[in-house]
Nucleic acid binder design. Structure first.
Lengths: 370, 370
DNA sequence: CTACTTTGCACAAACGTTTGTGTAATAACA
DNA sequence: TGTTATTACACAAACGTTTGTGCAAAGTAG
């Protein structure tokens, strides 16, 4: 297939040879070209294209038509430079793996592109230093807004002050600064913990263990609180023996399960604050010949992809990842619309959704329902 | 916590009040500010910062020092505008889900940020129209390069001509245009198919079925070819009955397995060109009480996350996702370094790696090795 | 017919860089 | 001492937009 021809190349800018002698490089057509061709000023062209009221209808049409014909492509850089802000949206996440962050990014990209913004992503790799540098990078790129899920060990949040001080909308999602008053969109983790635990209770379980995550992270604290709330609602006393803390890894989930199964008073369910942990637990439980969900029911958190392919499939709380991306962008758009409000930051709380699967459907319940 | 103070705000630009009366907005310090402060020209400042040879060592030091002190942040937009190219790298992928694309993006982001580029991602959602618009968007953002994995149904590749005609490096990865001569980085799918099948043969399997994907897609064609090559290398005749074509979904994988298990002459292994298909097959095989790998060995392609958590764990060919991202960026960097070469496009072929797991480890072999 | 508003457009100055050219001063060489 | 390199910097013109201001012409009200 031969290289595409650009016939209009000959007509345009006949003043001297092109800058670079590279024959493959086609010059971009600018507003000046349109203005010259139409015999009007650049002002008129610019205002016609942005539908300014001070331009007559006929002139607008002439400009638009020629723009189409010459395939005029606006140089966003120049516009951004002049206006001091671009159509770019900066996103900082710890990493792009697993299910959660890719899905959120997917949601962000979708909503942003609908609003005419492009998304530029950075990873902090859970490193505050990198996170700081990412923010600088984004500011240098003159982004119109910054969406952040902070690194795990970030304690100092001063690098975000620069964003605010430049008047750039700043939205945190999922992982938000614990102390400060910020714009944020988070999941209602407590509600999620409540839903899962209540579901287990409704299935007839009465001795429900909880695999809890690091309590200095809000999400895990809230999930545990939901667990406690559900127990309280059913009038079941909390047995601290049944709450095991871990880093939520598959290995520690397995270890926790082993410990739980050795208790003299046997458990009949486990709710883990993470899917990896419940997966580890599942493997241990099955390995000991204990039937799931017949003897022990299981429920996790995050609704990871693998929950639908284990045997039995795992009940889990869905985090509404794409919805979180959408919400973050929506919040950003609202912030750009309204003038900067240093105080009165906005919070959006998403409601989780429990996906009930085999691992928590008690046969007893099934029989009852027949 | 009070808003951060900017004491130097009082000293700088004492000519009139600030543009906007927004007290929260801090002005960015520009090269002009540095120049004025030091009593030199902007030229000097600019060249000092970019380490130009025509600037004296002492002057350079003075400039650098003040830049640090005032926390000067270069406006990349302005530089990009002047130089006609930014430090942005555009990426177009079909979607950001599953394992593959997020991992590749992760690799791209890593390599790009190391080279001082930011990454801006777009999704085509497998839609040529969106893909086309994405490319326009990226061009408007004045990206320095474009990295693309084309949509499934893209047949017309003219929208990429614009990229080339502007002299912007264009690299395709994984999903590349079949007909054209392009810069690309792909996996050696044939080698992957060969490795997996050969492995099954070495485990003692002799009647190996193949779940093939749509043959109009190169990746699936190549994987099948690898399968055929391996059989040929072992002098085993091809039985067309054992090759089943599908869309590689879990459902069709299951259906294919059902069909295969009904053959009068029983099979002893299945190699699927995708992990979802082999997962479907695994479930059917187990459901019929057939032991894996004892009676039938299984191997898939992509090394998805779930291959390590099925029972038994699934052998699969790893696609070196992050390596693909790195390679794509490397290729882009090489292209920017060398002047545009319309012909003689470069190809990079990555070697896959077989991850052997339980689903293909024959007991017979284990016993032999004792 | 005058005074005032609206409409439609042009002029020119920004935005913050980069860079070709000019030009002193100093150094090197014959 | 005169000629040429070299060093170190300044001037000013770009890059492609946006936008405040100015200024006619046309419309409207008195």
């Amino acid at each position: 297939m031969p290289a595409t021809f650009y016939p209009w190349l000959a007509n345009s800018t006949s003043m001297g040879p092109t800058k670079k002698q590279d024959s493959t490089t086609a010059p971009a057509v600018s507003m000046a070209d349109l203005a010259r061709e139409l015999g009007v000023s650049m002002t008129t062209v610019s205002r016609a294209l942005s539908d300014h009221h001070s331009i007559g209808a006929v002139t607008k049409q002439r400009v638009l038509k020629l723009a189409k014909k010459l395939n005029y492509q606006p140089n966003h850089l120049a516009a951004a430079l002049r206006k001091g802000q671009s159509r770019l949206l900066g996103v900082v996440v710890p990493y792009i793996e697993g299910k959660f962050f890719p899905s959120v990014i997917q949601g962000i990209e979708q909503a942003a592109s609908k609003a005419g913004f492009s998304v530029i992503v950075c990873q902090s790799h859970e490193d505050v230093l990198l996170e700081r540098r990412n923010v600088e990078t984004l500011l240098n790129a003159q982004v119109a807004g910054v969406l952040v899920s902070v690194a795990r060990n970030t304690q100092d949040f001063h690098h975000f002050d620069k964003v605010r001080s430049r008047g750039i909308p700043l939205v945190f999602f999922d992982r938000i600064p614990p102390t400060e008053q910020v714009n944020s969109v988070v999941l209602n983790d407590q509600e999620g913990g409540l839903q899962a635990t209540r579901h287990l209770l409704e299935q007839g379980c009465r001795r429900i263990a909880h695999l809890a995550g690091p309590q200095h992270l809000n999400i895990y604290k809230h999930r545990k609180q939901g667990y406690l709330d559900a127990l309280a609602a059913f009038g079941i006393p909390v047995d601290e023996e049944l709450i095991i803390y871990s880093d939520m890894s598959q290995e520690e989930g397995a270890a926790a399960a082993r410990k739980l199964l050795m208790l003299p008073n046997p458990i009949d369910a486990i709710f883990a604050a993470g899917d990896s942990a419940i997966l580890g637990a599942l493997q241990v439980v099955k390995g000991q010949g204990i039937r799931v969900p017949h003897d022990v029911a299981l429920a996790g958190f995050s609704n990871e992809g693998f929950t639908a392919i284990t045997e039995p499939q795992l009940t889990s709380v869905d985090q509404r990842c794409d919805e979180m991306g959408h919400a973050a962008v929506r919040l950003f758009l609202e912030l750009t619309a309204t003038p900067a409000t240093p105080f009165a930051q906005r919070q959006v709380v998403l409601q989780p959704e429990l996906f009930v699967r085999e691992s928590s459907l008690q046969l007893a319940t099934l029989q009852q329902s027949i």
